[in-house]
Simulated assay, not measured.
Amino acid sequence: MIKPAQLSIHGVSRTFTGTRGQRTQALLPVDFEVRENDFVTILGPSGCGKSTLLRIVAGLDFPTTGEVLLDGQPIEGPGADRGVVFQSYTLFPWLTIAQNIRFGLRERGTSEAEQKERSEFFIAKVGLRGFEHHYPKQLSGGMQQRTAIARALANDPKMLLLDEPFGALDNQTRVLMQELLLGIWESAQKTVLFVTHDIDEA
């Protein structure tokens, strides 16, 4: 039996209008569906609209045409059902690693005990045990990105959206992070939408 689509993208395009009225088409109309627990890679050169599409799915931008449905409901903004990891290390520099991972849980009103339990679980999962009380500036790029992935997963999203998350890492660290991500995907059973311009990585 074929599973129904978890994410449906129908005729989605994005055009930006400049200050002088000039129009730039960042994303041509696109249609595809993603089923639950799928790992889908969006591959293409820089400037082809990959990140624009991911931002639309994340609810951080809106399509000029078409619609995006998650479990049959239109996406109208950001939500805890989608965890996002960007290429840049988007951690809060004034928070420790544990506090960064617990941030979303705290905002949702999760109990202190559950925050602690979930953050400790994902800190161990991404191999950062012993660094809980460090600040982002004290960590390498790979460790910061592991923290970002742990923060996204701690909220228990239905879908993980990754926008060239390993693009700024050296080759050795990138391979380790790819293996980590695949291991998490297999164990956590999350739907993953992964953007990259690297053919080998795809």
Rank of each mutant, 00 (worst) to 15 (best):
M1L: 13
K3T: 15
K3P: 12
P4Y: 03
Q6N: 05
L7P: 05
H10N: 15
H10F: 12
G11F: 07
V12Q: 05
V12A: 01
R14V: 09
F16Q: 11
T17G: 00
G18A: 15
Q22W: 09
R23E: 15
T24C: 10
Q25R: 14
A26E: 08
A26S: 12
L27C: 06
L27G: 02
D31G: 06
D31Y: 09
F32G: 05
E36T: 14
D38N: 13
P45L: 08
P45Y: 04
G47D: 12
G47H: 12
C48R: 10
C48Q: 11
K50L: 06
S51I: 05
L53A: 07
L53W: 10
R55E: 08
V57I: 15
G59Q: 01
G59F: 02
P63V: 04
G66F: 06
E67V: 13
D71P: 03
G72I: 09
Q73E: 15
P74Y: 07
I75Y: 09
G77A: 08
G77T: 08
G79V: 08
G79W: 09
D81A: 10
G83C: 08
G83N: 07
V84Q: 03
V84T: 13
V85Q: 07
V85A: 07
F86D: 06
S88L: 08
T90M: 13
F92E: 03
P93A: 09
W94L: 11
T96S: 15
A98Y: 08
A98R: 14
N100F: 05
I101M: 05
F103E: 09
G104Q: 04
R108A: 15
S111R: 12
S111C: 04
E112S: 13
E112M: 10
A113F: 08
Q115I: 02
E120Q: 13
E120V: 06
E120S: 11
E120C: 00
I123R: 00
I123Y: 03
V126F: 07
V126R: 03
R129F: 01
R129I: 12
E132P: 00
H134N: 14
P136V: 08
P136A: 04
Q138F: 09
G142L: 09
Q145M: 10
A148M: 06
I149Q: 01
I149M: 07
A150P: 01
A150Y: 00
R151A: 01
R151W: 01
A154R: 03
A154H: 03
D156W: 01
P157Q: 10
M159S: 05
M159N: 06
M159C: 11
L161C: 02
L161Q: 00
L161I: 08
F166T: 10
G167V: 07
A168N: 14
Q172A: 14
Q178S: 01
I184E: 03
I184G: 03
I184P: 02
S187E: 15
S187F: 11
K190F: 11
K190Q: 13
T191G: 04
F194C: 02
H197C: 02
D198H: 11
D198I: 11
D198A: 10
D198W: 10
